[in-house]
């Protein structure tokens, strides 16, 4: 039993939280307000959606998917930074 459990890839809580944090950090780097907010929302929703996964295999699959999304997000931050909007979105203007 112990052997089979260790043979399976068990994704730890810390790894998942670290992925969540990395995705949020990457999301906050997008230069465009709409994309930045979308990436943030999508990260939070994705983690909420999979909150009740208990089967280690499906957790590992979701984790792998999240990691590939993180790679895409990191690349896209770079690509979008080359085409950054030169005006802010009205949503970004803060009135104090």
């Amino acid at each position: 039993m112990a052997a089979s459990a260790s043979a399976m890839v068990v994704t730890s809580r810390a790894e998942l939280l670290s992925l969540f944090r990395s995705l949020l950090r990457t999301a906050s780097k997008f230069s465009d307000f709409n994309i930045r907010e979308y990436a943030r929302r999508r990260t939070i929703d994705g983690f909420r959606e999979n909150r009740h996964l208990s089967d280690p295999a499906s957790v590992a699959a979701a984790f792998a998917d999240g990691n590939s999304q993180l790679d895409i997000a990191r690349r896209q931050v770079l690509v979008y930074s080359l085409y950054a909007p030169n005006v802010k979105s009205v949503m970004e203007i803060k009135y104090k």
Partner: peptide, 11 residues
């Protein structure tokens, strides 16, 4: 709150 909310607050 849960651990995800905790991460969001720290961010």
């Amino acid at each position: 709150l849960d651990s995800l909310d905790g991460v969001e607050i720290v961010m």
